[in-house]
Design a binder for these strands. Sequence first.
DNA 1: GCGGACTGCTTACCT
DNA 2: ACAGGTAAGCAGTCCGCG
Length: 890
Amino acid sequence: MTERHLDYFFTTTETAKEEQRESSCSPESAPQASGRVVFRSAAPKDLPPSYFVSATYSGEKGSACIKLYEPESERIYLWYDTTGHKPYCLTNLSPSELKKIGRLTAHPGLVDFESVEKYDPLLDRKVILTKVVAEDPLSIGGRPGGCIRDIIPEEYPKIAGAEQEAKVWEATIRYYQSYIYDRDLAPGMIYKIENNKLVRVRHEPSERMVKEICGLFQGEPEEYLQHIEGWARLLEYPAPKFRRVALDIEVSTPIPTRVPDPREAAYQIICASLLGSDGKKRILLLKRERVEEGAEKLPTDVSVEYFDSEEKLILAIFEALWEYPFVITFNGDDFDLRYLWHRAQNLGIRRDRVPIELGRRVCLLKNGVHIDLYKFFFNRSIQIYAFGRKYRDMTLGDVGKALLGLTKLELVKSISELTCTQLARYCMRDAEITLKLTTFDNDLVMKLILALTRISRMPMEDVSRQGVSRWIRNFLHYEHRRQNTLIPNAEDILALKGATVTKAIIKGKKYKGAIVVEPVPGVHFNVKVMDFASLYPSIIKVHNLGYQSIRCPHNECRDNKVPETPHWICKKRKALESLLIGALRDLRVRWYKPKSQDNSLPRGLRSWYKVIQSALKVILNASYGVFGAETFDLYCPPVAEATAAIGRQAITQTVSKAQRLEIEVIYGDTDSIFLKNPSQDQIDVLSNWSEKELGMQLDVDKVYRYSVFSSRKKNYLGVFPDGNVEVKGLTGKKRHIPIFIKKAFEQMEERLSQVKSPSEFEEAKREIRKIIRNRYLKLKRREWGESPDELAFNIVLGKIPKHYNKTTPQHVKAAMELEKRGHELKAGDLISFVKVVKEPHVKPIQLASNSEIDVEKYVGYLHSTFDQILDALGLDFNEIIGLTKLERFM
DNA sequence: GCGGACTGCTTACCT
DNA sequence: ACAGGTAAGCAGTCCGCG
């Protein structure tokens, strides 16, 4: 054990060396930290090729600031704009009209008016606008009490009367994004600094790949090829090694059930773990009197450092946060970094020694990049499409268990009562899970964030915190600026393109969505599932969908109708969305997906292609939905509606075509059709027909040895030729169902996986009856173990209990029971409860005992869970458990 | 005062 | 803060019932 009992762990020989290397660069501020200098690394006049990882606005310098990660020294350097680029917004008023607005000309932040020509995508013509340039972003918008974007529309009508409307555009774009767009910068890509100038660096090997990729798309229009090339260039470039540290802190609190408020930071920080990707493992512990050393051992490669004051401990953490280029936390925005910031404040640590930049909802680093994994894994698109729903709970424990198989250490006592060693182990494990969440699968998460950074043209910090609609918005905004197209205001799009016309099946929805084909109940052998590769993105591409092309201003386009709607689509001009999303789709389908499965490629390259194809999947899956989302800046409901309508037409026509070919269609959902025992010939005919008639790729996606359907939609079970079982939508697989019931369901799956032919079914059915009967008898005999744990239902609290005003569902009843006992509950918490005989018929698992369980309720659940399969097998639950017809009636 | 039919709310899932 | 469609269970309401 390399424990070092030091009064103040200060610096190692390694960090001393680092400092010397650093002394060549000029310190932006050089605060004294206990006699040593802490640097913010301003970039030197010349910097070797480095990754553009982040951008921000520096109030101090009054300019854009770029964070560059230099992969040789593994350090971050800050570069400040030298081009004189300034914030601005656009308006329809001319400079002379603007000059009449006294409040505007008197605005201290106003710099200049400049006439510019832009293409207006809603009117499909050029317009002359005025660029209103300001000294700083807050003068354009954001400062309360009079900023340029508010003054213009407020003041002009007072002067000119109401005839001419004063409008502003592009006034809510974050300044650093505007800077990125205007300078055509590519976050995530390589730049060098030459004589204080930021210069893009090309990479020959990836340029060669770009050529090869473009070759795949020969014959496509130039306009489209240009996008293929642009995307390919971004996506082919390799990723660097990210030197990073995972941080986790522990706070001593008198109330163990409550998380300390980081804004108050009222309690001591007693422990921190710093786990570096460079192999450094450090535990920083505060010396406390009461807590004796425990008997447990720590791994020998961990260095344990004791501090005699909390201030010194915090300063040691800060050293690391200044020094590492990337800092990884789990919920650091809302807890660890925020707590550290306020705690430092409370202890009177000087601001310039604090490496943390405190925001309202985020905590960033002055000299590094902070990735809060909680925000990243919480992202639903990431959870579902990148990680295939492997984790369900957004906690460090659950994500770690699901993705790494690494569980949190269990707390036997409250944090403040643990011995130093227990505390150290606990804290270290959390940091270990946090770090490993970014290292597993060959640094998958870091690479995924990098890929998304490139696609979205956003800083790594933003891309890891924001949702898919922001990613999509930003690359569309970039493209608008690149093509000198005015970015329209959301209300103008909505006013011009109007609302939706189709009627949704679900009450409260805006328009009609996809079709689900009625399943044919029963067991079907040799089922082939065909589906459209990225149906909605394909439609957006093939049918030229976008806010500017739907209901375009041209009369001659009005005959290009969308089925089931009065909408029409432009025939004259390609929509940006159609080109960009179309190119991304084609790249994924024709290059990245196949390459990610190509075993002849070197492992490293294949793993990069896997990352790219999964980043593309995440974006493409949301690319239709965003147009129907009010919160999306280019919200255009008719686009979403048209996409869905064309999708319905595609699947409907495909089903009819299959039937004309005399193939039995067993089922279908949105973009897929399940075909019973089709010949290869029939499949080829169908596929060719789709290509020709619909312009869309329809391929065999999977084959089942057999599949089992009840009459319920979105509910089936399929067995693959290798015996693997796929279960979709069935209750037995849902996460809220008790383990006790799941176990029986899994036994049944296991048995079904062995069935190879119709003749083997009879035997399997007999055994399935046995499985069910056994479970039933176990319930009746109350044989479920020492505690009722396996009988617990697990349901997520959608909101805090007191917000349930309309009804009080069972899990909320259980939750309120817990609250009465001092538990603090919030939205997203998982409530575990069992069904009991006495009112209110539920009890939190923590309080429940075996004797009070309501067995009949569980029999009911067993019944309904198995009915979904038994229907199809021609079995009957009541008959299986041995109830006579009479008993059933009673 | 009670139970069945109904609607609405809530969660988890599918594409 | 991507969309709509489906299943299931339960809460709450209405209505009829001498």
